[in-house]
Design a binder for these strands. Structure first.
Length: 293
DNA sequence: CACTTGACCTGTCCGC
DNA sequence: TGCGGACAGGTCAAGT
């Protein structure tokens, strides 16, 4: 579930706490979550300090002062929760934290810092991962190189979206939006919400979209992602921010997880179907399926 | 190459 | 109450 707004919320939280902290211990109990090949990551990390925390698409980058970065993908159920001297950071221990005592049964890795604070990587379903990669090599790493543009950057335009979509002309617009090489950071929640905003049926073939529809989709993507960022992302089950708190976007969602409820625009009943192999929410009146072009 | 499907996992929910 | 199966959704490998 962590998509662009969730990962960005975690990033901004971590960037308040981590820079300057020195790693004194590293533990992990699920090797696939933290592949230690080709280096002994524990030995490699101890003594290094955090410089900054960045994000690209749904990937977090914790840049260290050793020339290496911790590259983290939360996949569906990953969490990164910081526990430490909240008074020093002026945060106060959140009373609305979803997460209890740490580590818990879903903790796959944790990092201890010199001042006693800790960063926990929790991941119920074990799909997420942490890798140690040379910071200078990051731009050349295959999966990072292939990411499409960041939808909230100023340089991204509706014509840019149209150009990126050309590579997936014969698939559904929903599958294209979920393709990280087309556009970075969109997942199931914001794909459904944006397509509702643009009044486009998710199964519409990309090549049959008009320029007007692509413009509407571009604006919908930006407004949906911006609102989601402002609300700290979406918490359906697992997602929490760096302090263990939920995001509240879903109470503003128009269609996602709202099957059986009235469409906010036309009051038709929201339906749930399957498109591109994913659960898909739509309004059958606002989002009529148009014939292929 | 373009596109779709299945696998990776665990926890929850639904029907019998 | 127990149990099997479907489902949840990000990504990649494998298949068409």
């Amino acid at each position: 579930m962590p998509e662009l707004p969730e990962v960005e919320t975690v990033r901004s939280g971590l960037s308040r706490f981590l820079p300057g902290l020195e790693i004194t211990a590293v533990d992990y109990n699920w090797p696939k979550s933290f592949p230690s090949d080709p280096v002994d990551v524990k030995r490699f990390l101890i003594g290094s300090k955090v410089v900054e925390v960045k994000r690209r698409a749904k990937v977090l980058l914790i840049v260290l002062n050793t020339g290496y970065s911790l590259v983290i993908h939360l996949k569906m159920t990953g969490q990164l929760v910081f526990r430490g001297h909240y008074d020093r950071f002026g945060a106060g221990h959140p009373t609305d934290s979803l997460v209890g005592e740490l580590p818990d049964h879903s903790t796959r890795a944790n990092f201890t810092f010199k001042d006693g604070s800790q960063l926990f990587f929790n991941d119920q379903r074990k799909f997420g991962w942490i890798r140690l990669i040379s910071t200078a090599e990051l731009p050349n790493v295959d999966f990072i190189k292939k990411f499409g543009p960041e939808p909230l950057e100023d340089t991204f335009t509706w014509q840019g979206l149209r150009e990126r979509l050309r590579r997936r002309a014969n698939t559904s617009i929903k599958a294209a939006l979920l393709d990280q090489t087309v556009l970075a950071g969109i997942g199931n929640i914001y794909a459904d919400e944006s397509l509702w905003g643009a009044r486009i049926h998710p199964a519409t073939t990309v090549k049959s979209l008009t320029d007007i529809q692509i413009k509407r989709l571009f604006r919908a993507l930006q407004s949906v992602l911006t609102l989601a960022l402002a609300k700290g992302g979406s918490t359906d089950r697992n997602y929490v921010d760096a302090e263990g708190r939920k995001g509240s976007y879903l109470s503003f969602a128009s269609v996602f997880r709202r099957e059986g409820q009235p469409c906010p625009r036309c009051k038709s009943i929201i339906q749930k179907t399957k498109v591109a192999g994913r659960g898909t929410h739509l309004c059958p009146y606002c989002q009529k399926l148009q014939p292929d072009k």
